[in-house]
Design a protein around this nucleic acid. Sequence first.
DNA 1: CACATGATCGCCT
DNA 2: GGCGATCATGTGG
Length: 213
Amino acid sequence: MGRLSSKNRSIPHPLLRFAPESLGLTEFPRSFFHQDTAYIARRLLGAWLARRFKGQWYGGRIVETEAYLGSGDAAAHSRGGRRTPRIEPMYMDGGHLYVFLVYGMHHCTNVVTRPAGIAEAVLLRAAEGPQGIPIKLLSGPAKLSSGLGITVAASGTDLLSAGNLRLFHNGNRCSSIGTTRRIGVDYAAEAAEWPLRFFDRRSAAVSGPAGLK
DNA sequence: CACATGATCGCCT
DNA sequence: GGCGATCATGTGG
């Protein structure tokens, strides 16, 4: 049957349409993505992940992120220096995308950090759509990905190549940031407790049960 | 609200 | 062959 599972859907949700130019948003320079990964994870709060589809822009304001720190991080796909075709984009220059499939049906979108050769990344866990859009639409890494129609097909693309996937910001930094351990990585033992999850305290779109905020 | 479970398959060992 | 960087739905208190 022509089953249409989430992993095949690359169409952005129509409610997420917005006009980047009207908000005066600019883009981060390459050097921004070469900095400390946890620092970047915090700085990305408030930035807009945007996708151009058939001439229109769709996007959301990022409100929750997690940092994954590479070879020494037991929770990262690049733990122990692993290097396979799937995770190759993690080794690319900062500013690229790393997208993977989890549980056979959901996608997770990451922004690669650090210079090429260092496999670190920031998982985008939740975002707010444009004004008036249901708060749950992008609240969770898989929902954020599916809301914008981002699939593994986008893994390895460069956010700074003036393409259809971009990261915009308006110069304002998130001023109220919460920090907790990362979600869903209990298998990583001690690394699971590292305080590498960040979220905008003032946002109602942050994912997970109330206890995790 | 707090769990518990099933769905579903690519990736890695 | 085992297991996820998840989510929706169901149960029970």
